[in-house]
Design a protein around this nucleic acid. Structure first.
Length: 499
RNA sequence: GCUCGUGUGGUGUAGUUCGGUCCAUCAUGUCGGACUCUCGAUCCGUCGACCCGGGUUCAAAUCCCGGCACGAGCACCA
């Protein structure tokens, strides 16, 4: 039977069925799998710096799901490494602030792994006592060989009592760093090498910034996270897909403990065109070296830097919601975020003039009008006007200067000759170019800081001195959005947001 | 090397579970236009994609097989 035959037949039966219906783009997050009656989610950063735009995906996705299912969200600091990615004391509160700024509410539960050490140590001991883990004295290189060749290491077959003794030695500090490690006994002939007797706890003698030298044995992420997720009753884990093998490792551990593993979802790797690859530890060392002013440096992809510039949390939320939860590796552009942000703030920002590289010209008129009246917002989203006296001299941008006919926006048609302008009339009379401008009396010196890749460009100019509020974002006409960061008697300082 | 994951326009996504309603959705972007006293906003139009090759089928983005590309894990980091 051909399609035509079917079509003809259907025509007779139900003509409605033939009407083509276009597919609609489905929006919103996909439903969570499994039992969603009491959803418990978690967001678990390493407190070695403030949150970045990369972390923001985790915050947005998790808090959106928490909202959708009226679930709870645990903010957990995975701070069990004191050597390679040591915790930064200030970062704990920074992250809580960043989280709240972005999600609009504080996490329901905040925990620090370093404070939960007794729990992890207890479970580790139980694991050893139950014969599901053992103390391994092989060096990393030796074990790597065993792993590659699917061979048991000699430590694997020792008695539980011996393991327990070694466990005590590890904890009492008798064994030096690197001297031994606790492994989860899985199987050495698993096809996936990552899962073969994976390391769960190691010795660290360097002090932890919060708990000092109290503990000699610290859990690795896979163990700590697995135990804590169970302790907190986490129902759904949403994590990067680079952690897929962590899921598999942890499931093997959960089998040992007889626990039920949470539902797990993943997202792919994210790159931001403008920032390339960035890591918290990389930024940390660059800051220490003096390459950046600090974590709020305009050039950095931290949430603090974005907030400083004037991005709204809703823009990040829109961005990540639009992207959704996919396992594809993606590369996004800041321009997309900026577009979302423009939509969010356009109706909220009053207009002002910023004249960059100003040049002063004289202005005179036959007619009498020395006052300009310009709307605060062109579509009236913000009612009212800004009114200023004009005087005899005005600033215009060097690049706008041309001898001939111009229109001073919202004021008058002029003709420039030399360094003087003659007002030809106040109504717009033709299609001459419109420029922004500023009377000398209303102009105030201003500096605009614009992040450009690895540089910060400093633009000099004059700003319209009309009801300027510190901390507010304005749209400077024919220029773009910027935020006032500092006002003093000398100069107004602005940070660039976007066009 | 072993293991795992992902391939839809420039970018990001919907559709893939259960083949037909898909000459493939939406957003952003490009280009053009309208409007506007901003290079902003708004509106209209335009361009542009199913990784490749086989197979199954009346019918494949969707199912099967084989490639290829990219990414990740195999850390005493998270």
């Amino acid at each position: 039977m051909g399609l035509e035959v079917v079509r003809d037949e259907l025509e007779g039966i139900d003509p409605e069925a033939l009407r083509r219906e276009k597919h609609k783009k489905k929006d919103g997050l996909r439903d969570l799998p499994g039992d969603t009656s009491k959803v418990v989610l978690r967001f678990a950063p390493n407190p070695n710096g403030p949150l970045t735009i990369g972390h923001s995906r985790g915050v947005v996705i998790n808090s959106s799901y928490a909202e959708k299912y009226e679930g709870t969200i645990v903010l957990r600091f995975d701070d069990t490494d004191t050597k390679i990615k040591p915790p930064l004391m200030e970062a704990y509160s920074w992250i809580e602030e960043d989280f709240e700024w972005l999600s609009g509410r504080a996490a329901d539960i905040v925990i620090r792994a370093s404070e939960r050490m007794p729990v992890y140590l207890k479970q580790a001991k139980k694991m050893i006592a139950d014969g599901h883990g053992y103390v391994c004295q092989c060096t990393a290189e030796e074990f790597r060989k065993f792993r590659e060749e699917k061979m048991d290491c000699p430590c694997r077959v020792r008695a539980i009592s011996e393991n327990l003794e070694d466990w005590e030695s590890m904890n009492s500090g008798k064994i030096m760093e690197g001297g031994s490690v606790v492994r989860v006994k899985t199987s050495m002939d698993l096809p996936n090498p990552a899962l073969r007797d994976w390391p769960a706890l190691r010795i660290q003698h360097s002090p932890h910034p919060i708990v000092g030298s109290k503990y000699k044995v610290w859990p690795l992420l896979d163990f700590q996270s697995a135990v804590e997720d169970h302790e907190q009753g986490v129902t759904h884990i949403i994590r990067g897909k680079d952690l897929m093998d962590s899921t598999r490792k942890q499931k093997l551990l959960y089998e040992h403990f007889g626990w039920e593993y949470p539902e797990t979802l993943y997202w792919g790797r994210v790159k931001v065109h403008e920032f390339g690859g960035f890591s918290t530890s990389g930024m940390s060392s660059s800051i220490k070296k003096g390459d950046y002013e600090g974590w709020e440096d305009l050039r950095l992809p931290t949430l603090r830097a974005l907030r400083r510039r004037g991005f709204e949390p809703e823009s990040l939320i829109s961005l990540w919601s639009e992207i959704g939860l996919t396992q594809k590796d993606i590369s996004i552009s800041m321009q997309t975020l900026e577009t979302f942000n423009s939509k969010n703030i356009d109706g909220l920002c009053e207009r002002r003039f910023f004249v960059c590289n100003p040049i002063l010209i004289g202005i005179q008129s036959q007619e009498a009008s020395s006052e300009a009246s310009i709307p605060r917002h062109p579509e009236g989203a913000i009612p009212g006007t800004r009114k200023w006296g004009v005087g005899n001299h005005i600033f215009i941008q060097e690049e706008d200067f041309t001898e001939g006919k111009l229109r001073l926006k919202d004021f008058a048609d002029i003709e420039i000759e030399g360094s003087n302008a003659e007002i030809e009339g106040f109504d717009r009379s033709d299609g001459r170019p419109i420029i922004h401008w500023l009377p000398e009396g209303i102009a105030r010196r201003a500096k605009m800081f614009v992040p450009e890749g690895e540089e910060i460009r400093e633009l000099e100019g004059v700003i319209e001195d009309f009801e300027l509020c510190l901390g507010d974002v304005y749209q400077f006409e024919r220029f773009g959005f910027a935020k006032i960061e500092r006002i003093d008697s000398e100069v107004v300082e602005l940070v660039w947001l976007h066009g």
